[in-house]
Nucleic acid binder design. Structure first.
Length: 327
DNA sequence: GCTCATGATTGACG
DNA sequence: CGTCAATCATGAGC
């Protein structure tokens, strides 16, 4: 610190005593009176003076000796090249979420799982959420790639700069090739750490987006009255075997303005709840069977006809006490 | 705010 | 892969 101060003060003094920038060696012929320029000139002058000094070879050999003694210590400090399982995990995750790939449609994920229609027969709600999700994911992807590019460029520039600096220094002091490599390695590892942070925060952003989307999806909306009627009509008119075929499901979905998977969910829930508490559904059954009496809703057609729900394939009717069809 | 209804999710099973 | 059964989470009625 003290030496630096002395150097600066000497340089300043030197600058003050010279009316214009002149290094005395003819290196600089510019009429530049700025302090920074003068300092630079002074520095190059000193470098030149050192390189040409008659004691330079002796100094160099002394420095070589010191280097030989300390090189072991340098090796000891070398970083352990950890294989980075965490980085691999992050990479895999970003790839799976479609963030790593350039500008392509995100594969899988909750967006694809989402249906095309919403409860209540409003088929646009989900697509809105869907596109919103995709837009936000794309935004995250763009930020990720631009930041990554910035880091990579900065890393390249910094490495080149440091390499040049070391090469220049190697003229005045011994710089081993391993030392250069080590320096480059250190720079790379530092930038890798920054990249890892970027990847980590990107992952977090994707996870947050995803959980928000899932939360939104989980929000339940009751089906419209019409949709429930359509489903109930089918259920009670096929009470013996309430397992609509794929075509029937599609037809019901179309009629009710809901998705096929919602139809499947509804039938799954209905069968179980009906079986568990048939008494409770008696009134409902009476209403729907009365409505559909002689008006069979052939949405794909029933698989069989009995009086109670049974598991497909088993052919074993569920113990049934009610409801009874009106006589 | 409580309770019940109901759509969605999850894990096991055949 | 479809279904069952349990469970979660929210809507709706009071």
């Amino acid at each position: 610190m003290g030496t630096n101060l002395i150097c600066v003060s000497v340089t300043l003094e030197w600058c003050m005593t010279h009316s214009r920038c002149s290094d005395g060696w003819g290196f600089c012929t510019k009429d530049d009176f700025s302090l920074s320029h003068m300092l630079l000139c002074r520095l190059s002058y000193r470098k030149h003076a050192l390189n040409c000094h008659r004691m330079k070879p002796a100094l160099f050999s002394v420095l070589c000796e010191i280097k030989e003694k300390t090189v072991l210590n340098i090796r000891g400090v070398q970083e352990e090249g950890l294989p980075d399982a965490q980085l691999m995990r992050l990479d895999n995750m970003l790839l799976a979420e479609g963030v790593s790939r350039p500008e392509k449609r995100a594969r899988g994920g909750p967006a694809v799982a989402a249906g095309t229609a919403t409860p209540g027969g409003c088929p646009n709600d989900n697509s809105l959420e869907h596109s919103d999700y995709r837009a936000k994911l794309s935004q995250i992807r763009q930020i990720y790639h631009s930041e990554l590019e910035k880091y990579e460029q900065a890393c390249r520039e910094f490495t080149t700069h440091v390499t040049n600096l070391l090469q220049e220094q190697s003229r005045t002091r011994p710089v081993l090739p391993e030392e250069m490599e080590r320096m480059v390695g250190v720079i790379h590892s530092k930038f890798r750490a920054i990249q890892m942070q970027l990847k980590q925060s990107t992952c977090e952003a994707v996870m947050t987006l995803r959980s928000r989307f899932l939360d939104a999806r989980r929000k339940r909306r009751n089906f419209s009255k019409h949709a429930t009627e359509v489903l109930n009509e089918y259920f009670y008119s096929h009470l013996s075997n309430p397992y609509p075929s794929e075509e029937a499901k599609q037809e019901l979905a179309r009629k009710g303005g809901i998705t096929v998977s919602q139809v499947s969910n509804w039938f799954g829930n209905k069968r179980i709840r009906y079986k568990k508490n048939m008494g409770k559904f008696q009134e409902e059954a009476t209403i729907y069977t009365a409505n559909t009496e002689g008006n069979t809703t052939e949405a794909g057609g029933p698989r069989s006809q009995a009086s109670c729900p049974s598991t497909p394939g088993s052919g074993e009717p569920v113990p049934c006490t009610s409801p009874r069809r009106p006589q």
